[in-house]
């Protein structure tokens, strides 16, 4: 009987200590997981990803999920056409045309022939003043997406959200 009592007491002490160790280990794992989750963003990106694919007659704007997209086709002479629809959407553009496709938070550009002058291309077409971001500035054979996401990770490292506002645009943070 004495042996059993001793054994029970010793087991209780052992198991209590084991429980404390488990709790400490769990806390450590939680802290490490949280630190990993809050590690710096390695590639901040636009939330929706569009892609332009060449098809038989024109181009196809595609995305991983069905989404509403606005496409602006800019001809080399400076005129433009707009298409509005749900992906995948086929647009009758030529290889020499510029294609700029927008969602509410993303933009993708297919470069075309050299354009004379400077064009500001937004979700609402070619505009004169700076529109709601994101938008694209096309000049000659080059373009610039506004806002520029390069170097964003340095300024948003402390953010706990997956989505955050950067320079007037929603950006998706990918931690690594």
């Amino acid at each position: 009987m004495e042996y059993s009592l001793d054994a029970i007491v010793s087991f209780l002490i052992f198991v209590s200590m084991l429980m404390v160790v488990f709790i400490i280990m769990t806390s450590l794992v939680t802290v490490l997981a949280t630190k990993l989750a809050l590690s710096p963003y390695h590639s901040p990106a636009f939330p929706t990803s569009l892609r332009v694919v060449k098809v038989r007659e024109g181009y196809l704007i595609d995305s991983p999920s069905r989404c509403l997209v606005t496409c602006v086709i800019i001809k080399p002479e400076g005129t433009y056409q707009m298409y509005h629809g749900i992906t995948p959407i086929r647009i009758p553009a030529k290889p020499s045309d510029w294609i700029v496709a927008f969602t509410y938070t993303s933009v993708i550009v297919k470069v075309g022939a050299i354009i004379h002058g400077r064009l500001i291309v937004s979700k609402y077409g070619v505009v004169k003043s700076n529109p709601l971001k994101p938008y694209v500035v096309v000049e000659g054979s080059s373009y610039q997406v506004i806002p520029n996401l390069e170097g964003v990770s340095k300024s948003i490292q402390m953010s706990k959200s997956v989505y955050f506002i950067h320079n007037g645009t929603i950006v998706l943070g990918v931690r690594g």
Binding site: T48, R66, L68, T105
Partner: peptide, 15 residues
């Protein structure tokens, strides 16, 4: 239907 495509043109397809 319209709400659905508008939402997915704003959020990541993983969400």
């Amino acid at each position: 239907e319209s709400v659905d495509v508008i939402m997915y043109s704003t959020i990541s397809h993983l969400h």
